[in-house]
């Protein structure tokens, strides 16, 4: 019961979507399975929030090093959750003015929107922005033209970096647009590399990955790979 039922559910869930691909009559079944998946994906957000709450509460109660930060995280989580689920400060939808709860949860001006605009947005954006610095540092320390392969990689990177800005246009501006060598102008050469060499390389990688995904999926559906069920009887 604890292991067989999940195997059957996995098989059925997958097969419904596969046959829906081929038999138009079963298309509606595939849609239903996909919609159920979509709903579960939303419930997974609740699970994620619950896990965060559980882990950080444990850190605080165990007084592990840095538990103060867990308190900050919990406060941020609970405040956002309360104002968001409670639609605090959200005015009704103008179409349904007599329904107090009809406004959209992230209405501009509401506390939930405020937390997004002045908390979530600058923080996540800056987290990604600092990667620019690490890429620069890595370029300085790690990219070494040790052999022919490395030179190919670096050479391509140089051409792309220059060809995708105005620097490329200036550097090879002496080549006339209508000459037989116009393909060597950096901006045109960049396009050629992307559409020919990059396309070939990525296409091969894509074919390889597709085969990998297909075999993994089949293993899961047929119950050959059961690692997702975990070990142990419970």
């Amino acid at each position: 019961m604890k292991r067989t039922v999940p195997l059957i559910i996995t098989f059925l869930g997958g097969v419904v979507l596969i046959i829906a691909y081929f038999i138009p009559y079963t298309q509606a079944w595939g849609e239903k399975a996909a919609v159920f998946f979509d709903v579960l994906a939303a419930i997974a957000f609740v699970l994620g929030g619950g896990n965060l709450l559980k882990n950080h509460l444990k850190k605080v109660s165990d007084r592990v090093a840095g538990w103060g930060y867990s308190v900050i995280c919990l406060v941020a989580f609970l405040v956002t959750l309360t104002v968001g689920l409670g639609k605090i400060g959200v005015n009704p939808n103008t179409q349904f003015s007599n329904y107090a709860w009809s406004g959209v949860y992230d209405q501009v001006g509401s506390p939930f929107w405020w937390l997004y605009e002045y908390g979530f947005k600058p923080l996540t954006a800056t987290m990604f922005a600092i990667l620019a610095f690490y890429v620069a540092s890595a370029a300085f320390r790690a990219f070494r033209a040790k052999n022919f392969e490395a030179i190919l990689l670096l050479g391509t990177a140089f051409i792309i970096l220059l060809g995708r800005t105005y620097a490329g246009v200036v550097l090879t501006g002496f080549i006339p647009d209508d000459s037989a060598f116009s393909g060597l102008k950096l901006e045109n050469f960049t396009v050629y590399i992307m559409q020919v060499f990059n396309t070939a390389g990525n296409r091969a990688i894509m074919i390889g990955i597709a085969l990998g995904v297909a075999s993994t999926s089949l293993k899961v559906l047929l119950g050959v790979d059961r690692s997702y069920l975990g070990s142990g009887g419970d």
Binding site: V35, D38, Q95
Partner: peptide, 26 residues
């Protein structure tokens, strides 16, 4: 709508199955 590619999978054949209202609840 949550569900990543499963959303595309549904709406390519039946958009209103998932989107029963617009974002503002109409």
């Amino acid at each position: 709508k949550s569900g990543y590619e499963a959303v595309i999978k549904v709406i390519v054949t039946d958009l209103k199955q998932l989107y029963t209202t617009d974002r503002f609840g109409a």
